[in-house]
Simulated scan of single mutants.
Amino acid sequence: MWKAVASNALTFFIVFLVIASGLLAWGRKEYSGPGPLADAMCFRVERGATLSSVSRMLESSGVISDARIFRIGADYSGQGSGLKFGSYLLPAQTSMVGVLDIITAGGQSTCGSEVNFRIGIASSDVILRELDAATNRYVEVASFDPAVDALPQPYLDAVEDLDLRYRVTLAEGVTSWQVVEMLRRAEFMEGTVDEVPAEGSLAPDSYDVTRGGDRAALLAVMQERQAKTLAALWADRAPDLPYASPEEALVMASIVEKETGIAEERRQVASVFVNRLRKGMKLQTDPTVIYGVTNGEGILGRGLRQSELRRETPYNTYVIAGLPPGPIANPGRLSIEAALNPDDTPFIFFVADGTGGHAFAVTLEEHNANVAAWRKIEAQRGQEGTTGVQGN
């Protein structure tokens, strides 16, 4: 009898082990294998949410197959108490372990909406975008000019979301005055700016900010980034450049930045000015003259007058020799690279060619022909003014 009891007990124990092993294997497969989510989605973890409530939401949303397995796996891995508030992009068929990694990783949210405050040369705007989880691309919801437009309702609704992300983006070639003036219109930032940073000292780039962030602190970050960029590129500069200091290279970079918006041309444009400096020729470039007229406070909005081209100012490179006393804008990294590593060319002239680029020349005769071609294009377009480097 006892043998039968022992045999039955052993049988039950073996069956139990088999069932337990099967359940464990099934649980591991459910936890580590592809999830049931058919399409990518944005999932929000509320502030103060518990693992239990989040697991139930994930199950009801079709992200995971079993909330209990998710909780057991989270507790076993030690991530159960590491939930991070925010909105997260969950790709289709993400496993439970993948979901857990995403919502406990911390850092910026990977889904939801963002505000991009874009500071441009001619105008600025605020873009409200929302991530389309299906395509993993942002879709514009609203846009407005903070200088002239009232805040649109979609924007007012969006700023109620504490998880809304903010970004400030500087275009290459903006002046420091323009940056400060527009930051003062950024309603989501705080703090005063007592002085306009030195021209050229701000790095055109995109900056993540928080609502209520300090304007002066952001400007300091921009200055630090530009200083690091200039120092690194100065250390890797070409030999025998006609600059006495990194600051002079920054002046040249700002001129290159304002002369061409075509990345492939920057080193050629820089070569023209470097060749002129080496030959003792005046730079004769319109953007410096314009800066002497506007002081960087907005755009001129018209062609230069002959009286302005003849007037002696520290920035009139038709009159003064060498570089102007300071930068005329905030140049981007590519223009600084061009100024410090220009192409090796014989060019000493260039003028617009009507395509957005420039025609380069070695001799005054070649240049005059290029200028004549440009004047015909100007006449056809009804434009006036000069551009590029003129002949002596």
Rank of each mutant, 00 (worst) to 15 (best):
P346D: 15
A171W: 05
I102V: 14
A231K: 14
L17K: 05
T313E: 11
D39G: 05
A379S: 14
K258H: 07
V63F: 12
V193C: 06
P325Y: 02
L218W: 01
L162D: 04
D75G: 09
G98R: 07
K279S: 13
S201Y: 10
I72H: 09
N116V: 12
T363C: 09
V371G: 04
Q108K: 10
L89M: 07
H358G: 03
L24A: 14
E248T: 08
L37Y: 14
D101Y: 08
L58W: 06
I14G: 05
R185S: 04
I103L: 07
G73L: 08
R266W: 10
E248V: 07
A253K: 03
G391N: 11
I299Q: 13
T192K: 12
Q380A: 15
I121Q: 05
E308R: 10
A25R: 10
Q153K: 12
M222H: 04
F144P: 02
S307P: 00
A217W: 00
T50N: 02
G173N: 06
V18A: 15
L156K: 07
N330K: 02
I121V: 15
E365R: 12
R44N: 05
S206V: 07
M281F: 15
S254K: 03
N316R: 03
R305T: 12
A220K: 09
T175E: 06
S123V: 01
V139T: 00
N316V: 08
A270T: 03
G62K: 08
V389P: 09
L151K: 03
A92K: 13
T355W: 01
Q226R: 14
D236A: 12
A372Q: 13
V174K: 01
L304P: 09
L164N: 00
Q383I: 06
A369T: 12
F85G: 00
Y207T: 05
I64F: 10
K258V: 11
